[in-house]
C-alpha cells in the first residue's frame, strides 16, 4: 500500500437543493489506479470533478468538507496550479480543432514554455507515453480532428500528461471507444500508474477488475464500500456491492 495522495474528509456536495454527494471520506493512494464504480447518477463523476474543482464552473453548486492533495487543502491552491497538478481526461474525446502538435503543446505553452526544442521534446515524450507516437509522428502538423476516436482519446491523455500532472482523473475514458481502442488505453494505464495516481470512473466492471488496484462503489451519492479491488470483487462486505458487481442491478 502506497502513501496517501488524496485525502477526502466529510465532503458533501449540493446542486441547489439536491444532495448529490453525502459525507464522502476516502484516502486515495499514490501511484495506483483507483476505480469509481456504481450505477448512472450515483455521483462518481461529480466526485471526480471535485478533485480538480471543475464543479466550480457550475452555478448553484455548494461543497463542504475538505479535500487534501499531498496534505494541502485544494481550496487553498490557485485553481490553475491545481488543475495543472490534477489532469483530467473526459468521456468524449475532446481534442482541440488544431494540429496534433498544437494540441499537445497547448498546455505547456499556457504554463509558459516557449522554447521550440523544449516543446518538441515534450510533444514527443507525451505522445510516446500515451502510446500514440508511432501512429502520428509523420503527421504532427495535421488536424487532430482527423484521428480515430481511440487515437483522439490517447491524444487527450498525451495532452494531459504534457503538463506533468501528478494525478490523472479519467471520466469513463473508454465508453465512447471500440474494444480494440479500449484495450490500448487499458494497457496504457498499466504504465501510467507507475508515474501517476490514476482515478478512473467506469461503468465497465471487467475494466475495473482488470486495471484497478482499489475500487470504490458509489450508490445514491454515498460510498458504500471502498477497498482493494480484489476484495470488492470477490469478498464484498455489503450486500448492495455484491448485487451490483454480479449484475443484479445497475
Amino acid at each position: 500500500m502506497g502513501s496517501v495522495k488524496i485525502r477526502v474528509k466529510d465532503t458533501n456536495l449540493y446542486y441547489g437543493n439536491h444532495h448529490a454527494l453525502k459525507n464522502i471520506n476516502m484516502d486515495i493512494y499514490d501511484k495506483s489506479v483507483t476505480a469509481l464504480i456504481g450505477p448512472s447518477g450515483c455521483g462518481k463523476s461529480t466526485f471526480l470533478r471535485c478533485l480538480n474543482r471543475m464543479n466550480d464552473l457550475i452555478p448553484n453548486v455548494r461543497i463542504d468538507g475538505e479535500i487534501q492533495i499531498a496534505g494541502n487543502d485544494i481550496n487553498k491552491y490557485d485553481v490553475i496550479l491545481l488543475r495543472k497538478k490534477v489532469g483530467m481526461v473526459f468521456q468524449k474525446p475532446n481534442p482541440f480543432p488544431m494540429s496534433i502538435y498544437e494540441n499537445i503543446a497547448y498546455g505547456p505553452r499556457i504554463h509558459g514554455t516557449k522554447n521550440r526544442s523544449k516543446l518538441d521534446n515534450i510533444v514527443e515524450k507525451s505522445l510516446r507515453e500515451a502510446a500514440l507516437w508511432d501512429e502520428v509522428k509523420d503527421r504532427l502538423k495535421s488536424n487532430a480532428m482527423g484521428l480515430s476516436g481511440g487515437q483522439q482519446q490517447r491524444l487527450c491523455i498525451a495532452r494531459t500528461i504534457a503538463v506533468e500532472p501528478e494525478i490523472l482523473l479519467m471520466d469513463e475514458p473508454t465508453s465512447a471507444l471500440d474494444p480494440a481502442s479500449t484495450m490500448k488505453i487499458e494497457d496504457l494505464m498499466e504504465n501510467l500508474k507507475k508515474q501517476y495516481t490514476v482515478i478512473i470512473v467506469t461503468h465497465n466492471m471487467q475494466q475495473a477488475g482488470r486495471i484497478s488496484d482499489y475500487a470504490a462503489f458509489f450508490l445514491n451519492g454515498e460510498i458504500i464500500e471502498y477497498d482493494k479491488t480484489e476484495k470488492i470483487f470477490y469478498k464484498p462486505m455489503d450486500k448492495r456491492t455484491e448485487d451490483y458487481i454480479t449484475g443484479r442491478f445497475g
Binding site: 483530467m88 473526459f90 481534442p95 480543432p97 497547448y106 498546455g107 499556457i110 487527450c156 495532452r159
Partner: peptide, 27 residues
Amino acid sequence: VPKEYKEGSLALGSSHWQAIIKVILPS
C-alpha cells in the same frame, strides 16, 4: 463552440481568458 473544448482547456490549467483566446475564438 462545443463546451468540451472549453472544459478541456480549463482542465489543463488554463485561465478562462486563455481558453477564450486560444481555443474558443479560433474555433
